[in-house]
Design a protein around this nucleic acid. Structure first.
Lengths: 239, 239
DNA sequence: GGCACTATGTTCGCTATCGAACATAAGTAT
DNA sequence: ATACTTATGTTCGATAGCGAACATAGTGCC
């Protein structure tokens, strides 16, 4: 990637008023985030929040027996580490890089200082947190009621919404971990989507061929989350 | 019920410093909440927040086809209507009274004024919201991985934790709506628990007989939510 | 006391997903 | 090229929960 990096590739940062943005800028540190990197581990004190630009981060709960389930996904529309300003400092879930890329990080204390100015950043962060609540709620609903095919569509759309390209580097094994299902189930579901001409799969690379087709097949959960996110964060320009 | 009512039956209110509590007090209005009452409907502007004392409120998502799933449950440990201070004003879910009782309500504008003083109430509300995030996340995990028997245990324990008595007025049909499963499934799961001597069921009345037995049978999700809630809100006295 | 309503119990076949074992193929290193 | 590793594909029986139909039994109302 030969592109230049800028914090305003993150939509929360880019929708800050110039003053607030300028105050934050010197403290934002560009970090590279390789696939699989763990940003925060369950129950461990967080030192930074991360504002993804090109990376995507999964919030994943890992059970005692090792099984896992994705709770939410965060890309350039949001921030990883809301529990820092919410006051808890830790969460029971893990944050893991689902798609390699970059993010800007900010030390926890600096973020909290900024948050308690009760200015535009606080408003943005709280509204973003509400959209995260919606995403988690809808994940619960989707896990309860929808088929694996539908859930895979939702997961793919959520991912492609947060990616600059139409290609996602991701094995079926990893998708299965995220969705909390067997790898074989993903093979079958992905096969269905490929047969329908919506995606193309090749050994760890997923190409989006027909977004409208995915949207036609996905359950309502995707639309609910997207609409709510657009409503709560209208300044955040959709791609 | 011949008991007298007081706002400090709600743990969030009761853990406010005297000054803040006193400032809120004249604006708190006791309301009776009968079973099934809808406090907020999906997408509708909220006028008040509710601090339950003896009532329990379910946050429920209702799908286009009428199927539903509970996202979280709120009792005297919390507050219904976090999206008022989070900035969204509405949510895609419905808040419905799951167990009749009382709550104190506060006009939205007054709550927001108080919230933006950035004092102890703000801290409490944000920490409570984080515990709500955890509850939703764990609901998603539980829906994905655990059996109906386990989920029913979790649901019962969450309910009895928020009730003054050992009896819950609730039909299997309603529980099925909350859990997003068939009523027959609840009949079977409840039958198992009854056979094991953990609860006694009789036509809309559930009696808790053996809490330890339920705790032995429930999945880890219950404990995760409870521990996180205790950690985030230590002033909130457990029953 | 009798009736109607509602809550609970039971059964049947059906489907999605699981769990495990194994087969193939696409990259990767030598 | 060759062998090795890893990703994907396929099959099988098992099972949890679904959907629908129907049976039984409390509870309240007249």
């Amino acid at each position: 990637m030969s592109c230049t990096h800028s914090p305003d590739q993150n939509h929360l940062l880019s929708s800050l008023p110039p003053d607030d943005y300028a105050r934050l800028l010197p403290n934002l540190e560009l970090v590279n985030m390789p696939l699989g990197e763990i940003l925060y581990e369950s129950g461990i004190q967080m030192r930074h929040v991360h504002f993804p630009t090109t990376a995507i981060v999964s919030l994943l709960y890992v059970m005692e027996d090792g099984a896992s389930a994705e709770i939410a996904v965060v890309g350039n529309e949001g921030v990883v580490g809301v529990s820092l300003f919410m006051g808890g400092e830790t969460t029971p879930s893990r944050a893991i890089v689902q798609s390699a890329g970059h993010a800007y990080r900010l030390r926890g204390q600096l973020l909290k200082d900024e948050f308690y100015r009760a200015g535009p950043l606080q408003h943005l962060l709280l509204r973003y947190t509400q959209s995260l609540l919606t995403q988690m709620a809808q994940t619960a609903v989707c896990n309860r009621h929808h088929t694996l095919d539908q859930q895979l569509c939702r997961w793919l759309l959520l991912s492609f919404d947060r990616l600059p390209a139409n290609e996602l580097i991701m094995t079926q094994e990893l998708i299965a971990n995220m969705l909390g299902v067997r790898r074989e189930g993903v093979t079958e579901a992905a096969g269905n989507l490929q047969k329908a001409g919506l995606i193309e799969y090749r050994r760890g690379h997923i190409q989006l061929l027909d977004r409208a087709g995915l949207e036609a097949r996905v359950c309502e959960c995707y639309e609910v989350v997207k609409r709510e996110s657009d409503r709560l964060l209208p300044n955040v320009i959709a791609r």
